[in-house]
């Protein structure tokens, strides 16, 4: 039945490609979460009236975030080829896609972190200061826990965007479902391969969204 519907699908290659997509998405999401959180917190703390209010630092961080957020991902991959070569030692394979994925997604997530942190009641930060809390205590015990639902739903959206980015990184030979759909499906005119790759990508996206929703609901005590 499945054989008849999708006669050209090589299932071993399909599962291998799915694994590559999941691997690239998972690793880049974890690193994007950490990097985006750091940049987002820096943006927040250096903004006016905050603990490290500093116009210059805020302007530089904000500008870098805006620049990298504005470059189309497909262009960013090509621009970053020399850096990738330096960091990973090759420009082919799943690991070679990671620098571009992270540099493309981290500024995007940093903006979402900033929005999440701005939603925190200023009074709560003031209360922590009035108790004699250090800035590090405020970051780890006030800022992050108090914005956690927004941070999680933000990383969910980012992870889903990253699934899309991994497909595009197929152009530098990163592997994954995107590349399979393009080379095996489009270039060889086997539309069933493209269809199966699409279905698997959809399933991955739905699972990410579901996990994100479950965790967001669980941590939100408001």
């Amino acid at each position: 039945m499945v054989e008849q519907l999708f006669p050209n699908v090589n299932w071993d290659r399909m599962w291998q490609a799915a694994y590559e997509t999941i691997y690239m998405t998972a690793v880049s999401t974890v690193i994007t979460f950490i990097l985006g959180l750091v940049i987002g917190i820096l943006l927040f703390l250096t903004s006016p009236h905050q603990l490290w209010a500093n116009k210059i630092a805020n302007f530089i961080t904000g500008s870098l975030v805006n620049i990298f957020r504005s470059i189309p991902f497909i262009v960013l991959i090509i621009l970053l080829i020399p850096l990738t070569n330096l960091l990973v030692g090759t420009i082919r394979g799943t690991n070679a896609a990671l620098p571009a994925l992270i540099i493309g997604a981290a500024p995007f997530y940093a903006r979402m972190v900033l929005i999440a942190l701005r939603e925190i009641d200023k009074g709560v930060i003031e209360a922590a200061r009035s108790m004699g809390a250090k800035t590090s205590t405020i970051i780890f015990k006030v800022l992050i826990p108090e914005s956690l639902p927004a941070l999680i739903s933000g990383i969910t959206v980012t992870a889903i965007a990253l699934v899309g980015y991994t497909a595009m990184s197929g152009i530098i030979g990163a592997g994954g479902l995107g590349q399979l759909a393009y080379i095996d499906g489009f270039q060889r005119d086997r539309s069933d391969v493209t269809q199966v790759a699409t279905i698997i990508i959809l399933v991955i996206v739905f699972i990410i969204q579901w996990i994100g929703d479950v965790i967001t609901t669980k941590v939100d005590k408001r």
Binding site: D121, G123, V124, G132
Partner: peptide, 17 residues
């Protein structure tokens, strides 16, 4: 010094988490 001068607030300012 702030640990010896505490404060309470109009809107309570508790951590909801």
């Amino acid at each position: 010094a702030r640990q010896k001068i505490s404060m309470i607030f109009q809107h309570f300012n508790l951590l909801w988490s």
